[in-house]
């Protein structure tokens, strides 16, 4: 398998390792719901092949959860001179660059699990829905500082639509 894509001249800022906990908890809940939904009819109807489906689903979720630390380490961002660079993904890699002037708004969200470990999620919104920059796992203070910095940068490089 050839090398993964790596951008030249980049120094990524990584997200907090505590985000692994948040992500794992999220996947566990989803896994419980979906595997449970598959298991209930299997038990009730007594299908033997149903257990194969349940097993396969459980295996997929286990693999996803096992890869979470690496996936979280793959999330990164960098404030460059004129644009924000963001990356995420292991199997499906995604790099996004967005000029600061394109910012329409910045959201800061805190889910229940993230809040319990003191993390926030920052969402950078442009006029294009496809931009999709969501930086999870930022310590609360850092997220607020980053938001203020981004707003300041966007103000200084104000652009039309």
């Amino acid at each position: 398998m050839p090398e993964r894509i790596e951008l030249p001249d980049t120094e990524w800022r990584r997200v907090s390792p505590k985000y692994i906990v948040v992500d794992v908890v999220g996947y566990l809940v989803t896994a419980l719901v979906i595997v449970g939904a598959a298991a209930v009819p299997t038990v009730l109807a007594g299908w033997t092949w149903g257990w194969w489906v349940v097993g396969a689903l459980a295996a997929i979720f286990l693999l996803t959860i096992a890869l979470t630390p690496r996936r979280v380490r793959a999330i990164g961002f960098q404030l460059r001179e004129d644009d924000l660079l963001f990356r995420r993904g292991l199997m499906w890699q995604r790099f996004v660059s967005v000029p600061y002037g394109r910012m329409q708004l910045v959201d800061i969200n805190r889910g229940p699990v993230a809040r319990s470990v003191g993390l926030s999620e920052l969402k950078f919104v442009t006029a294009a829905a496809a931009t999709g920059i969501v930086i999870p796992g930022l310590p609360e203070g850092e997220a607020d500082a980053l938001r203020d910095r981004l707003v300041e940068l966007a103000e200084s490089r104000r652009a039309g639509l």
Partner: peptide, 12 residues
């Protein structure tokens, strides 16, 4: 507005 670079497993 922005530009993205993608690579999935088959592409890789």
């Amino acid at each position: 507005q922005s530009v993205a670079l993608h690579q999935g497993p088959i592409e890789r």
